[in-house]
C-alpha cells in the first residue's frame, strides 16, 4: 500500500466509526433524516461521475437507475419480505444489467444524443412502473419497516449507517478506477474516442465497464430509499430532479478528481437541506438551477479546477 492509500483507508475508517458513534450517541432524529439524503447524493454523484466524469458520457438517467433501485426494493419487500441487504444487492444486480444496456447505446450515440436518450429511457421506465399495478401504480405504495436490528435502536439510524457504507464503497471504487488503467483508458476515450480506439484502447469494453459499475452503484443507492420514506411512487422515485441534482453536484465539485463529486454533493446537498427546512422546497430547486448555471459558466472545471488554478498561480508567483 502506498502512503496515499493508507491515508485514504484511514480516512474512510475514521468516517465510518464517526458515523457509527453518531448513531449510538445522538438522540435527535433530524440529523439522520437530513444526513441520509446528503450521503445518498454523495454516493449518487460519485457513481455518476464514473461514467459522466471520467468517460465524458453525460448521463441524465440517474433518476432511472435510482427509481429502479427503489422499485426493486419495493417489489422484493412486497413479494418476499426480503431483508435490506438483499434489496440492495438485487438493486445493484438490476442496475448492472441496465448499465450494460446503456453501454450498448453508446455504440450508436454520443454527446448530446446520448444524453437525450438517457432522459427518454427514464420516462419510458417510469411509465412502465406507473402501469404496473402490483407495485402500486401511479398512486404509490406504502411500505412497512421491519423491526430494527441491534446495535441500532432506530431504523433511520441504521439506514444512515448503511448509506455511509455505500458512500465508502462508491468512493473506493471511483478512486481505484481513477488510479488504474481503467481510468486512464476512460480519459483517453473522453478526449478522443476514435484516436483512443486506434491506439489500441478497448473503448467498448471500458465504456461497458464504466456503465455497469456506475449503474449498479446508482441502483444500490436507490434501494434503501423505499425503507427510508416507507412509501414509493413513480413520479417522485423517477423525478428528473435526481438526475439534474446529481449532475450539478459533480460539475460543481469538478469531475477531474474522485473527490470532486464529494465536495460538490456536500456543498449543494447541505445548502439544499438547510434551505428546505428554513425557506421552502421551491427555493431549493431555484438554488440548484442558479448554482448549476453559475458554475458551468464561471468555473467549468468546478471547485477542484478552481483549487488547482489557485495552487498553480501561487507556484508561478514563487518562481
Amino acid at each position: 500500500m502506498t502512503r496515499n492509500s493508507i491515508a485514504f483507508w484511514t480516512g474512510a475508517t475514521v468516517f465510518l466509526v464517526a458515523v457509527f458513534v453518531m448513531t449510538q450517541v445522538v438522540g435527535n432524529q433530524y440529523p439522520f433524516f437530513a444526513g441520509y439524503v446528503i450521503l445518498q447524493f454523495i454516493a449518487l454523484a460519485v457513481a455518476w461521475s464514473i461514467l459522466g466524469g471520467y468517460a465524458g458520457y453525460v448521463n441524465f438517467g440517474t433518476s432511472a437507475f435510482f427509481g429502479v433501485g427503489v422499485y426493486a426494493a419495493v417489489f422484493l419487500v412486497k413479494a418476499f419480505s426480503a431483508p435490506l441487504p438483499l434489496q440492495i444487492l438485487a438493486g445493484a444486480a438490476i442496475g448492472a444489467l441496465m448499465g450494460f444496456a446503456l453501454g450498448l447505446l453508446t455504440l450508436r450515440m454520443q454527446g448530446i444524443f446520448f444524453s437525450i436518450a438517457t432522459i427518454a429511457l427514464t420516462i419510458i421506465i417510469e411509465t412502465t412502473i406507473t402501469n404496473w399495478r402490483y407495485v402500486g401504480g401511479a398512486a404509490g405504495i406504502q411500505i412497512q419497516r421491519p423491526a430494527v436490528t441491534a446495535p441500532f435502536d432506530n431504523y433511520v439510524q441504521m439506514l444512515f449507517f448503511v448509506q455511509a457504507l455505500l458512500v465508502v464503497l462508491a468512493v473506493a471504487i471511483s478512486r481505484y478506477i481513477q488510479n488504474s488503467w481503467i481510468g486512464r483508458g476512460l480519459q483517453a476515450l473522453r478526449d478522443d474516442e476514435l484516436a483512443a480506439e486506434c491506439t489500441g484502447v478497448p473503448t467498448l469494453r471500458l465504456k461497458l465497464l464504466a456503465c455497469v459499475i456506475s449503474g449498479a452503484l446508482m441502483c444500490a443507492v436507490g434501494a434503501p430509499t423505499a425503507m427510508y420514506l416507507q412509501y414509493a411512487d413513480p413520479a417522485s422515485a423517477f423525478n428528473l430532479n435526481y438526475s439534474v441534482t446529481t449532475l450539478a453536484m459533480s460539475l460543481i465539485g469538478g469531475t477531474a478528481h474522485w473527490s470532486g463529486p464529494i465536495i460538490g454533493a456536500i456543498l449543494l446537498g447541505t445548502t439544499q437541506q438547510l434551505l428546505t427546512v428554513t425557506i421552502s422546497s421551491e427555493i431549493n430547486v431555484l438554488v440548484l438551477g442558479l448554482m448549476l448555471v453559475l458554475f458551468v459558466v464561471g468555473a467549468p472545471e468546478g471547485i477542484i479546477g478552481l483549487i488547482r488554478k489557485l495552487r498553480d498561480g501561487r507556484k508561478e508567483g514563487e518562481v
Binding site: 444524453s115 427555493i283 448554482m291
Partner: peptide, 21 residues
C-alpha cells in the same frame, strides 16, 4: 454541447421555479 445541456437544464429549472413563485 455537454456543458451547454447542463446550462440549459439549469435555466429551465430557474424558469420553472420563477413561474411557481
Amino acid at each position: 454541447a455537454v456543458r451547454g445541456i447542463a446550462f440549459f437544464f439549469g435555466v429551465a429549472f430557474i424558469i420553472e421555479v420563477l413561474i411557481i413563485l
